[in-house]
Design a protein around this nucleic acid. Sequence first.
RNA 1: GGGCGGUUAGCUCAGCGGUAGAGCACUUGCUCGACACGCAAGGGGUCACUGGUUCAAUCCCAGUACCGCCCACCA
Length: 883
Amino acid sequence: MLEKTFQPLEIEEKHYKEWEDSGVFACAPESDAVPYCIMMPPPNVTGSLHMGHALNTTLQDILVRYSRMNGKDTLWQPGTDHAGIATQMVVERQLDEKGVHRRDLGREAFLDKVWEWKEQSGGTIVNQLRRLGATPDWDRERFTMDEGLSKAVLKVFVQLYKEGLIYKDKRLVNWDPKFHTAISDLEVESKETKGHMWHIKYPIDGEEGRFITVATTRPETMLGDTAVAVHADDERYKALIGKSVRLPIADRLIPIVADEHADPEQGSGAVKITPAHDFNDFEVGRRHDLPMINVLDIDAKMNENVPEAYQGLDRFDARKKILEELEELGLLEKVDDHVLAVPYGDRSGVVIEPFLTDQWYVDTPTLAKPAIEAVRSGKTTFHPKQYENMYFAWLENQLPWCISRQLWWGHQIPAWYDEDGNVYVEESEEAAQAAAGEGVKLTRDEDVLDTWFSSALWPFSTLGWPEADKDDIVKRYYPGNVLVTGFDIITFWVSRMMMMGIHFMDEVPFKDVYIHALVRDSKGQKMSKSKGNVIDPLELIGKYGTDALRFTLTAMAAQGRDVLLSEERVEGYRNFSTKLWNAARYCEMNDCKPVSDFDPNAVSYGLNQWIIGATLQAKTAIEKAVETYRFNEAASAIYQFTWGMFCDWYLEFSKPLLWEDNKDDALKAETRATTGWVLDQILTLLNPFMPFITEELYASMAERGGDRLLASSWPEYDESLLKQEAMDEADWLIRVISEIRSVRADMNVPAGAKIDLLVKEAGAQTEERLKKYNEILCRMARLENISLTDDTPKGAIQAVLDEATLILPIADIIDLDKERARLQKQIDKLNKDIKQIDQKLANEKFLANAPEEVIAEQRTRKSDAEDVINKLSNALKQLEDAA
RNA sequence: GGGCGGUUAGCUCAGCGGUAGAGCACUUGCUCGACACGCAAGGGGUCACUGGUUCAAUCCCAGUACCGCCCACCA
């Protein structure tokens, strides 16, 4: 006997272990089955499970479970990402606590420490994914720094270099002064900050007392100024073009140049040009062939290129000192308040400096073109479609991608330099040596690659590319069917996988991209540790069970929207699992179980035919929703069917059939078998969404033996299961009963005054139909506290009628005025409806243009309304009489 | 500054050219033989505003107002 409530925690671990041991997660490359492949976005190895992972993983798990049930050879490729900066940071911090700095350890020893850390703690997230019931092919788990994946990185780098698509260049990069590395544009977060705009007077050389005023938000960079730019058409400054100014403090002569970058409308119209510390100025500097003076060191302190008094000062201290000195010199014209966007490193949280260095770049503008084309031509489709705009917008405005990082943890760049500075890019040191010539002393580039470089190769590197003996696997599972991910990494990851996939595999990496929303808290705030509003998925799992969390996330995963998670919602779906549990308990108590030779098509009783047909409809709705990635609709369909149909109506209707007073044993057996069959179907249909409870209930059905639901197949039904007559009758019955209940409840009496009218309507139906539903009416009568003594159909109805009539003189029970007003209100509303319909039906244009069925519908609505008005009027009259 | 999205019940959200939907919350009545994590009934909406297209607009188009997000070098 099942307990009264479902205890998820007791069984989740057990079932997960059984599943994993059974080997069903594994793909079967040798099989004849159609392959289906999803690449799991590899979580950071440093990560721990958050709601985003929970949502992402749940949706993928639904897809792969569904795919397996449909007999496909399913590969869900799991793994983790080495997460360059994040991981190095974690290990460095640990070392710091022991008073050790990585530079003291040296590269080799430090990397050993990182690997050590990875072995010990790197598995956290992967085990947390198991708690979610995720079923990826764990045997194939990969890590972006695995040997095989590293080989792929080498090959890709070398090939792109030889094709001229990777190159080294001296440009401005976003420099992180804390981590001492370049970072990509995407890793920079700009924050609005209140600052100041300083207007500084630069003395014009040779013209005592004349100045040109420049405006800046960053006065400290003036020490690196190499020009002042004005617009060629700016009347104020036209005459000054070609002259020089004497740069204060630094005491250098710099030219005044004409450049369109100077906007006469902005500031003073004259701009100081600091090519080594500003992206715009860098471009201006290139146009005018200006010297580039770097005034900062890697810590963003002033370097040896500034006057001695400033050397070694932090940039912000230098700013103060510069301003003081300018003030003293009387060169500070004015200060305005100004709001500006200040760049911060998304990992380090410190202000990023544009910094002039040598870095490696990928020619993304070139690689982007086919990636754009692939989406335009529909080779890859985004769901929802609007995210394609984001994808295009980003790829179309590509700047070269800076891929080198001054870190140790990551894929070291396969470039070697000889003593003359010549570079040799090869897959191994031997190959580089061969290229350089014997005896040439080579040193390897110290830098490593951006962590997203290896992630970009994930869809094929995990399959074994470029190893020749893995060709079959690559061919079988590439391209994948769908990528499931959040919109925040379309730029970081999706577009780069597209570029690399197309370039190296000649084919897009996935056919569909399903973009799900970000999970936010119930107030719509992004969950973040600093806000303290993080809801820990594991906590919710502990409280409500994995199934409840999974179902909540699924039900809320509408396309293109943020997912606002509230605990109440999870509780609601936990209640759903309890409901299902108790339905199964009912089945157990009434000995309703699947019968092996049960043929749903051979069922004779209308009620049973109806629920079988409804099962088919639910199944169709669910699969349509899953296949179009409308997860919330799928969840809603199975929820509605299970609770709203099966439990609320079918089980209630069928109860009298199973009771002792029903002597029809054949009917009893059929009803038991049908009930068991439907429960079995529900468990199967619900399994991808709520794997644990369905598995547990499935196992609890004794006949199952060692079967596992996970390995069973998605139901296939014959369309002929849908018996229209039975469906219509059930609809009718549900409507009538609802109406009877409504009337009763409205009048707040044991049986309503108007109940007779409704029962009369029931009586007007065919004798046959009444006979069929006699038992149900008995059941109804019981629920409605009406005693039925005669067991003939007519007698039953008559008894209800008598009962109703008995209670007719009820003036002392109900509030007549209130009831009268209520009825009148309903009548008025219906009259208004009818008036509207009449207007429509009188409209010639409507009659001429509207489709037949719409017109017919309006007519039906009108006559229905008229009928109801009649009934209501009668009831009103009876009320008066009774009074 | 550019782009994208949102505005539907008290809350969180579905929906969609032709009778406004769900869950939660709320009100009322129920220990009736699966389930109070339950059952039954009920209240509550000019579908942001203004125009346009249409026989018909919550839905399509344009504009307005708020609210988000992304991108951007405004010194």
